[in-house]
Design a protein around this nucleic acid. Structure first.
Lengths: 194, 194
DNA sequence: GGCTTTTCTTGATTTAAATCAATGAAAAGG
DNA sequence: CCTTTTCATTGATTTAAATCAAGAAAAGCC
């Protein structure tokens, strides 16, 4: 079915699959539609599925005494979930919800475990997925330690121009660890010097 | 040989190996001794090997206009390397050097690639290694966005008491994204309220 | 042991960002 | 369409941490 085309397009870029393998893996996937501003995962619940974003956008965040801190955005082609909760089946420490009407391709924990056992290419795909995420996160953390706010914002705009278009500014501020007011002032300064 | 015992002890905790498998993997490893304060990797070089710390300690850091920012410490049982550089064979963006006399178990890129192809258990080991590192980094990044300095320092002390003993305080400050002066004052405040 | 270097602490001052407060603009929703 | 939220900007003030500066303590080395 065309429903999983995008998922397998991304998969094949990492690990090429035969048609049979693709059908095998597809049988473990389910589709899930969620409307805008609905919760996909709440802190304290177990993250039962890992999600690939077919359509729409989500945010992952933590809440620390009333303040939301956005950890990650996910748009089409990205995956999202609370990995620790998913793998260990312990309560999640993050919240995940949709920013727009979304369509998710879900891999349940049971499906994930079984595929790891029976389909080496799935393990390779997952390894590459996590490796990429780790490298990106390390870069991001490193930047947040060493670069001034202006450069961190410019880097974000350059790297994720689509997210800048689709996500409210105050959420990007939260992602960068700033208040909305500060980001507004940073932007003002940057447009002046351009 | 006993030289690799500690490496395989850690490996077996993630993925149990038979003696034959262990010997097979061992034939791809090399041992490396480095004296205190020597470089293991410099920015701009390609990270030719990923290192497991048998003995000693290292730090990974970036330099941004003269300022060092410590990304990671590695003591016995940890692994360290510039993962992006290692996998892509592009120039490293990080520096890595020893803090004490150290002994490293090295896996070269060629060995890594070959083992991934011929020994599924090595792939599983590596997947679990990176998965753990990713989860830990996400937690750390999340804390650095949301927790006040005091709690971040307490969390560090609780999680890595050994590193606190062995590493100069100003490097811990750098790891936490603080100046040495600020960390000194944070510590003073914490001992008072205890 | 004494000398040098590194590390840590403390104080005074500056600076960057948060907070507080208000207004205007845009988007969402009936 | 109008009303209500949500969102972005701007200004004034406060606050936390960086910076600047100096001295004390500890560690490393001939």
């Amino acid at each position: 079915m065309a429903l999983y085309d995008f998922y397998f397009q991304q998969f094949n870029e990492k690990v090429p699959l035969t048609n049979e393998e693709q059908e095998q893996i597809q049988s473990y996937l389910t589709l899930n539609k969620i409307r805008k501003k609905q919760s996909f995962l709440q802190e304290g619940e177990v993250c039962k599925s890992y999600a690939f974003v077919n359509k729409g956008s989500l945010r992952k965040y933590s809440i620390e005494n009333g303040n939301e801190h956005i950890i990650q955005f996910a748009i089409e082609g990205w995956t999202v979930g609370d990995l620790l909760s998913f793998l260990s089946e312990e309560p999640a420490t993050y919240h995940i919800d949709t920013l727009e009407d979304s369509e998710l391709v879900l891999m349940s924990k049971a499906a994930h475990d079984e595929l790891l056992n029976i389909q080496p290419k799935y393990e390779t795909y997952f390894r590459l997925l996590i490796t990429g995420a780790y490298i990106a996160l390390q870069r991001r953390h490193s930047f947040s330690l060493s670069l001034p706010v202006e450069q961190r914002y410019m880097d974000f705009v350059e790297k994720y121009p689509e997210i800048v278009q689709r996500v409210p500014q105050h959420m990007i501020a939260s992602y960068l660890g700033l208040t909305p007011e500060t980001l507004s002032r940073v932007r003002k300064k940057l447009t002046k010097h351009k």
